[in-house]
């Protein structure tokens, strides 16, 4: 070879310090290029993004629903009270002394004493057996102490421990904590959470397949370009890059779409939920996905897009060898 010919590798003169800048500039260029490519085909892009968004919105929406039901059950626990039925031989004086003792308990907010007369009167007015009750020779009802736990004490286990502790007192016949149904409800919620996780996994697989298939078609459409790039010396990483970015964009836009769908759904059902809560003389503002769940959806969908395209590129790019 003649010495007058300049080598193909004059770019070796590029300062090593500039190489990362060139590399980053290339990545930015490819990322924007693939975004531009997607935006130039709005219909096809929109359809793929919509499929991903719906697939991700389903588990995300169910997650939001379960989260709200969980918060609701917590509030039910916070209103739970413990009823202490005292022994029949405990008189009112002893009961007041016990109430005073319990009021000093750090886990109790309030202790209310219900005397046998008061209880019998309430029973008479609410049960509809008022006449029959007046015929009783003596009051068969014991003194009852209603314990209101502090708001920080809301888990069923903690409430149960408190009830057991109160029951150990000699004046107490038995304690009743009516949160069993709340525990069952929470068990159902736990089961539903698992179900959402499984559904999320299945739909994540669906997203992988959607992105993978879209990228496969993209590779088919650009086979000529890929072959030419290989012939002019592009590395496999260089050829893979635009497809990976395309998958990443699909995932990110799909995640954004899912987030918007869930947010819209929550806005739409807030009205009926508020009206329902008002019927129970309470308020229940729905809780959105929150920053952590939102970031998880966006990050997860981005990763799914990248993974789907990476799998597809690994499988189908090898077939695009130059002819």
């Amino acid at each position: 070879m003649r010495t007058g010919r300049r080598s193909a590798h004059r770019r070796a003169r590029v300062s090593p310090l500039r190489l990362p800048v060139i590399w980053l500039a290339h990545h930015l260029q490819v990322a924007l290029g693939s975004l531009g490519h997607l935006l130039r085909n709005p219909l096809a892009t929109g359809m793929t993004v919509a499929v991903i968004a719906v697939a991700l919105a389903l588990p995300a929406g169910l997650y939001a629903l379960i989260r709200n039901l969980d918060l609701l059950s917590e509030s039910w626990n916070q209103t739970a009270t413990i009823s202490l039925f005292l022994t029949m031989d405990t008189d009112l004086e002893q009961a007041r002394a016990l109430a005073a003792e319990l009021e000093a308990h750090r886990q109790l907010d309030q202790v209310t004493l219900i005397s046998p007369d008061q209880a019998l009167s309430e029973l008479g007015s609410y049960s509809g057996f008022g006449e029959a009750i007046t015929q009783l020779e003596e009051n068969p009802l014991p003194v009852v102490l209603t314990l209101q736990p502090t708001p920080d004490l809301w888990t069923p286990a903690a409430l149960e421990r408190l009830a057991e502790e109160a029951e150990t007192r000699p004046q107490v016949d038995f304690a009743r904590l009516d949160t069993q149904w709340v525990r069952r409800f929470q068990a159902i919620l736990n089961l539903a959470q698992r179900g959402v996780m499984l559904l999320g996994g299945a739909l994540a697989l669906a997203v992988l397949l959607v992105v993978g298939n879209t990228i496969r078609l993209e590779i088919e459409n650009r086979r000529n370009e890929i072959e030419i790039m290989e012939l002019v010396g592009a590395t496999p990483a260089f050829i893979r890059r635009p497809f990976l970015y395309t998958g990443g964009w699909y995932g990110l836009f799909g995640g954004l779409g899912a987030w918007v769908l869930v947010a819209l759904a929550l806005v739409l059902i807030q009205g009926p939920v508020s009206r329902l809560a008002a019927l129970y003389h309470t308020q229940f503002p729905l809780t959105g996905l929150g920053p952590t769940a939102s970031l998880t959806i966006l990050g997860g969908s981005l990763c799914l897009g990248l993974l789907g395209s990476w799998l597809s590129v690994g499988r189908h790019l090898g077939a695009a060898q130059p002819h």
Binding site: R11, V14, R18, L19, I22, W23, H26, I228, M229, V232, G233, A234, T235, F238
Partner: peptide
Amino acid sequence: LPLVAASYG
């Protein structure tokens, strides 16, 4: 194309 593939400035 060949220059892009070779990451020229």
